[in-house]
Every structure is written in structure tokens, then in C-alpha cells.
């Protein structure tokens, strides 16, 4: 299973990552960070393809995506353009 890490203190709750994700892995949580922003969370990690769309659209660089080395990329390929 791939892994997505959210840096909650950097997240501003804009939700751009939630619509960029083709697999609906990310959702708004019920938590607020110290800045008062309602942060996103990883709701369906199993569905993640490690495509990194979320990380690349996040305007605050709050997301890091880790691909499980053994796991085959399902569906979307890692964009490295």
C-alpha cells in the first residue's frame, strides 16, 4: 500500500488536493490546525495509486507521497514531466 503524508501544520484546508485526486483518497477532516485551518486527511489510503496529483497541486507543499517499492502502480503512472 502506498502512503500519503499530510503535514497538518502546513495545510490550509483549501481542498484542491481532494478534487485533484482521481481516486477520492483525501477528505476534509474535523480537525483544525494551530493556524485555524480545517485540515484534510487520508480517508482511503488503499485506493491510492501514488500518482502524486495531490502533492503537485497543493499550493502549500503539505503533501508527500510514498510509493511502495514492490507494489505495481495501478492505473495512473507517476507524473514526472
Amino acid at each position: 500500500m502506498h502512503h500519503v503524508l499530510i503535514n497538518e501544520e502546513r495545510c490550509k484546508g483549501c481542498l484542491l488536493c481532494t478534487v485533484a485526486c482521481p481516486k477520492e483518497v483525501l477528505e476534509q477532516s474535523a480537525r483544525f490546525n494551530q493556524q485555524g485551518y480545517k485540515v484534510v486527511e487520508v480517508a482511503r489510503q488503499d485506493d491510492c495509486t501514488a500518482c502524486a496529483a495531490c502533492a503537485r497541486i497543493c499550493p502549500d507543499f503539505a503533501i508527500r507521497v510514498f510509493r511502495k517499492k514492490s507494489a505495481k502502480p495501478k492505473g495512473a503512472k507517476g507524473e514526472q514531466a
Binding site: A52, A55, V65, F66, R67, K69
Partner: peptide, 20 residues
């Protein structure tokens, strides 16, 4: 925070994609 932390990910055979 997510249950798995950065250090664990770096040890457990993950590669980061789209690094900053």
C-alpha cells in the same frame, strides 16, 4: 497525523514520488 511516520516510510521500502 497519519499513523505511519516519515522515518518508518524511509526504512520500509518506499520511494517518495514528486519530491519537493
Amino acid at each position: 497525523m497519519t499513523s505511519i511516520n516519515l522515518a518508518a516510510l524511509q526504512q520500509e521500502g518506499y520511494t517518495e514520488v514528486a519530491t519537493l
